[in-house]
Amino acid sequence: MTEQSQTDTVPASESRSATAEAPRTRIARGRFSDGNQRQILGLLAVLGILIAVGSFTTDNFFEVSNLVLLLSQASIIGVLSIGMTFVIISGGIDLSVGAIIALASVWATTGATQEFGLWGMLFTAVVVAGVCGLINGVLIAYGGLVSLIVTIAGLASYRGMATLISGGQPQVVRVDGFGAIATTEFLGIPLLVYMFATTVVLGWLLLNRTTFGRHVFAVGGNAEAARLAGIDVRRTRTIVFVLSGLCCAIAAIMLTARTATGASTHGNLYELDAIAAVILGGTLLSGGRGTLIGSILGVVVFTTVNNIFVLNNLSTPIQQIAKGVIIVIAVLLQRRANKESAG
């Protein structure tokens, strides 16, 4: 707040003329969602620049096959980032998502599970990942532990379990229907993308149109106020982690289908990609504020960067450096946007 004045770049004369006719009444531009909208516009601008770069530096960026590839690459982290958005808005963090993916994919592809066929495998993935999320949530909400610690513990132990179950060996998917998840297309667009889109829509509705979504914002913004308003803070926190777990289940199914294997190495470091996308999308790490659309755009931006680098045959280290730079710039922009609208 105290430095606000230094970054205030609007010249005095200009801001005066803007409000001269209607002093002290709101002008159209000053809407509540201003901060969020600005964030999203910023991301769209970044995306526009990336697309321009992509189309100039490569010949095949705009080929349908490339765009479809891009979207299906974005799908897995995209689904994860939806659960992560809920968790971060509620004031927590979930570092165990990559490990949950590994455990769910391994458990769903053991010889015994595969006996039950496609639905048995899907069911197993959902239950395993959901229970992992539930364990996280209960420890955090009812055990009063810090989410960072609990999910770091989860990160280690869920992946450990995955290694134990699989004996460290990749397990090949033999059920035909399962592999089809990755190969089926409608209207030229892979099923994976539809799964992603459905999760986005459901997540958006849950966050923005239900009492539960409202409670998530309230708990993250001021947990004590939420408690005194009669909101079940602990239940809200628990559900948020279960949601993150369920998103891991979907991601695990997608990844397992795409690779046709269940492996304890699946999803390694995915948590960082998901968190980076959420933060890039403008969700505050301290909780209470954020948008799902921002997170999705964050994922798309990162995926586009990867895509352009791959098309240009640039090495992974350079990709990683670029990612780091983008994160820092985005967070700097975010801080500025916050200051401009702060008191």
């Binding site: 509540f32 913004g221 001021n222 106020a225 939420a226 005194l228 308003a229 505050l284 209470g288």
Partner: peptide, 10 residues
């Protein structure tokens, strides 16, 4: 501030 309001909410 500490017991009632959720600052970023409308």
């Amino acid at each position: 501030k500490s017991q009632a309001l959720v600052p970023y909410e409308s």
